[in-house]
Simulated assay, not measured.
Amino acid sequence: MIETYYVGAYWGARKEDAGECARRLATVVQLLQPVDPLFASWFKGSKSLKQALTRPLELEVSSLQQYIQRHLMRDDRRQPMEDLGFSFSLWNGHQGGNDAWLSIGCGGYWEQGTNRCVLDAPNEGPGLERVLTTSFQVAALRALATAWEPDWGAAVSSAYRDMIKTKYPDVWPGWVTYFSRRLGRVPPLPAPVRIEPVEDKGTLVILTPERFTATNPAHVALADRVCELLERAGLLQRKPHPAK
């Protein structure tokens, strides 16, 4: 079975209108562009991929704001549910023979909800070897963290996520994990773990210099030890983030 990976950023209730979400979306798209040719351009989600290719994403904030406003969450009667914010997706147009997706939920301020920005990069095809590198995963998560200022985020293998989701249901660490300063301070961690700041916003924890896999016992043992230290530091419990 192929071990698949994704990069996600998550944050609690934060009331932001379509204009504020548009500025953050423009930022994340611009920050992802130099990470890899996969992200040179994006297309708006549509009923079919063929139709999506006729709807390129324009980076003017006013255009993005209009697009996001049309994706305000609604109930079964099509009535607005403003406290749930906006939800939409983007596709990279199969650039270089690879598909990539951005799934975004932002502006929600329901206290039990979660906002997110999830990047699904290719798990097959010609770009796979670039994607499955520490440098790619670090750069992608750094871009998401910088743009959205989440509470936490992770570049993680779905197999490893399944292994730990019961023990750590609120915040699950991955190959690379981001912690906002709002959650607390990252403690000293054992080698070969590396720690990098993200501006003044938070910290990246990078478990291994090579590809992290859930089938490697040494990788899993290292991750378990790091999780123990992070849990002891109070970083793996979800903390309320009051709406603005």
Rank of each mutant, 00 (worst) to 15 (best):
H219I: 07
P187V: 09
V35M: 10
H219M: 10
T215F: 12
G85A: 12
A233K: 00
E16L: 03
I2G: 07
G85I: 07
D151H: 03
T4A: 15
R182C: 05
L189V: 01
A147H: 05
D170A: 14
V7C: 13
P188I: 00
W42G: 02
V28H: 02
D99A: 04
F179W: 10
P190D: 02
L64V: 03
R116M: 06
R161H: 07
R24M: 12
R130V: 03
I195P: 05
E58L: 13
T134F: 04
W175N: 00
Y168M: 06
P37K: 13
W42E: 01
P197W: 12
Y6V: 07
Q30E: 14
Y160D: 05
R78M: 09
I164K: 01
C21H: 02
L84E: 09
D151K: 00
S46Y: 10
W152F: 08
D170Q: 15
E210I: 01
L59P: 04
S46C: 11
G125K: 09
L84S: 08
A121S: 01
C227Q: 12
D83E: 10
N123F: 05
R194P: 01
P190M: 02
D75Q: 09
A221M: 10
N98R: 02
W152V: 04
R14F: 05
L144F: 02
I2E: 06
R194V: 02
L222A: 01
F88C: 03
K44N: 11
H71T: 06
C21I: 03
G127C: 12
G85C: 07
L49P: 06
E82S: 15
E196P: 05
Y160S: 06
L236Y: 06
E58Q: 11
G202I: 01
D151M: 06
E3T: 08
Q33A: 14
G153T: 01
Y67W: 15
E199G: 13
R161N: 11
A221I: 07
V193D: 13
L229M: 11
L57H: 14
G113Q: 07
V29G: 04
G97E: 15
F136Q: 01
Q237Y: 13
T146L: 15
P126A: 10
E199R: 14
I206V: 14
L59G: 03
H71L: 04
H241A: 11
V7P: 04
